[in-house]
Design a protein around this nucleic acid. Structure first.
Length: 278
DNA sequence: ATCCAGGAAGTCG
DNA sequence: CGACTTCATGGA
């Protein structure tokens, strides 16, 4: 992918594989908003403004290096799609989702965010995360950072209940505490994905699906396949009759191997957008 | 109004 | 283990 970096500005040239809206709306990230014609995205204590200019994608940010990695600009999605086609992913999903990029997000932020996502609506997930940032995040230039481990670990369960977390209040409480007390999330980077999933599942509120989301979006592990309600639907529609998420996951990881995460995003986005329209 | 959400924990057998 | 139930909240 061709891009240039200047002071405060990344220009991605005529990217067939960088669709701002698809990348933000495909369910991997919650802290973004539309401001007029542009989009604004927040992560950790950073933010960037995204816009289309002529045929280019412009990223305005004071931390160019961070967002080159964040938007996965060095990855070639053309080659990924070719390999996915070989592995048997149908064209319609890839054509429909062309332009999606898998974001390389903060591990801690994805852990907390996807605990909140479990059995919840996306608009509500966004709202709760924003509330946490507003109340506990470091105030910056016109926005708030995502709360630090310490900021979250030193709250009471009642605090999280007041933020609208419901029964997930205790999950966030326990998990923030565990990490604050020394649960080493950085060790996850060096683990094979099956052990990494098992390790993450020790955290309260983290099960197989949330763990896979964290591994994919937070740790850049692409040999995992988060199976949620949408993937179950799409599986039964195009692959085979099965309702056990564990069996579905194994079948899909066997099929797509180290490209599972990409396949998952194309399939998730495809099915969810199609069902939305009807 | 009432249904249900990018699932996970708890409790059974 | 595996199946089955429960879980708080508020946007649609």
């Amino acid at each position: 992918m061709e891009y240039t970096v200047e002071n405060g500005k990344i220009t991605v040239f005529a990217p067939e594989d960088f669709d701002i809206l698809k990348t933000l709306e495909c369910g991997q990230v919650f802290r973004y908003k539309k401001t007029g014609e542009n989009f604004e995205i927040f992560t950790e204590n950073k933010h960037a403004i995204l816009k289309n200019e002529k045929n280019n994608v412009i990223i305005l940010t004071s931390d160019e290096k961070y967002f080159v990695k964040y938007f996965d600009l060095c990855q070639n999605y053309d080659i990924i799609r070719l390999n996915l086609k070989d592995k048997g992913l149908f064209d319609a999903a890839m054509t429909f989702g062309k332009g999606i990029r898998i974001l390389q997000q903060s591990p801690f932020e994805t852990i907390i965010s996807f605990i909140i996502s479990a059995n919840n609506h996306i608009p509500r997930i966004k709202k709760i995360i924003e509330t946490l940032c507003t109340k506990l995040g470091e105030p910056l230039d016109g926005y708030y950072a995502f709360p630090s481990v310490e900021a979250l670990a030193t709250q009471s369960v009642e605090f999280f209940e007041k933020c609208g977390l419901g029964y997930r209040a205790n999950y966030v409480f326990e998990t923030a505490r565990a990490i604050y007390d020394g649960f080493d999330i950085n060790s996850i980077y060096d683990m094979p994905s099956d052990l990494a999933q098992k390790t993450l599942c020790k955290l309260k509120g983290v099960g197989p699906k949330v763990a896979d989301c964290v591994l994919l979006f937070g740790f850049g592990k692409t040999d995992v396949f988060p199976v949620d309600t949408w993937i179950s639907k799409v599986y039964n529609c195009y692959f085979g009759q099965e309702d056990n998420p564990k069996i579905i996951r194994k079948a899909l990881v066997d099929k797509f191997d180290n490209l599972s995460g990409y396949a998952q995003q194309y399939l998730f986005y495809y099915k969810r957008e199609l069902d939305k329209k009807r």
